[in-house]
Simulated scan of single mutants.
Amino acid sequence: MRPDTFYAAIGGHETFVRLVDEFYRGVADDPVLRAMYPEDDLGPAAERLTLFLEQYWGGPTTYSDTRGHPRLRMRHAPYKVNPDARDRWLRHMRAAVDSLDLAPLHRAQLWDYLERAAFSMINSFEE
């Protein structure tokens, strides 16, 4: 692991696992978001998100090595991601980010990316 990455600075794999696990605790009880996950077990989705975030922030390239280019909008296209779904996603992710003991600058950097990503995934304005 390169020591000069955001990934390393916030604690590497363990931090991203905690973030994603906390996020999916919220998703599991959210009827709108839970319906977007066809699998009974959220574990595979959590693994994919962990790998994606780790790679994005300078960690291992396992995501691309196993799944190819992220193509986030294409992968989310089958699901109705409207402003309500975005806001729910952000609510659970905010709780997850806040559960970590990150330095204020790191928290702000992470949140800025997550918020921009959530807004970019909107593909419907239907209720």
Rank of each mutant, 00 (worst) to 15 (best):
Y113G: 06
L90M: 06
R67Y: 13
R71E: 14
R2A: 13
A85V: 02
V17I: 13
G11C: 06
N123C: 12
N123P: 14
G68Q: 09
A8S: 14
A95L: 07
D21S: 06
Y113W: 11
E22N: 13
R75H: 10
E115C: 09
Y113F: 13
I122E: 03
R75G: 03
L49M: 10
I122P: 01
L19S: 00
Q55A: 11
R75Q: 07
D29M: 05
L105T: 14
F23D: 02
L90E: 02
F119H: 15
M36H: 11
V17R: 10
L49H: 02
G11I: 11
A9S: 10
F119C: 13
M121G: 03
H76K: 09
H69C: 04
K80V: 12
M121E: 07
A118K: 04
P38M: 07
A108M: 06
T50F: 05
Y56K: 00
L72E: 01
L19H: 02
A118T: 10
D40N: 15
A103W: 09
R116H: 15
L33V: 00
V20C: 04
D4C: 03
I10M: 03
P70V: 03
P78I: 05
G26H: 12
R107E: 05
F23L: 15
T50Y: 05
L102H: 01
A46K: 11
L49A: 05
V17W: 06
L105Q: 15
R67K: 15
T61A: 13
G68A: 07
P38C: 06
D84G: 15
A117R: 06
V27H: 04
T62E: 15
M121N: 03
Y63S: 09
H92G: 08
G59T: 09
D21K: 07
N123W: 10
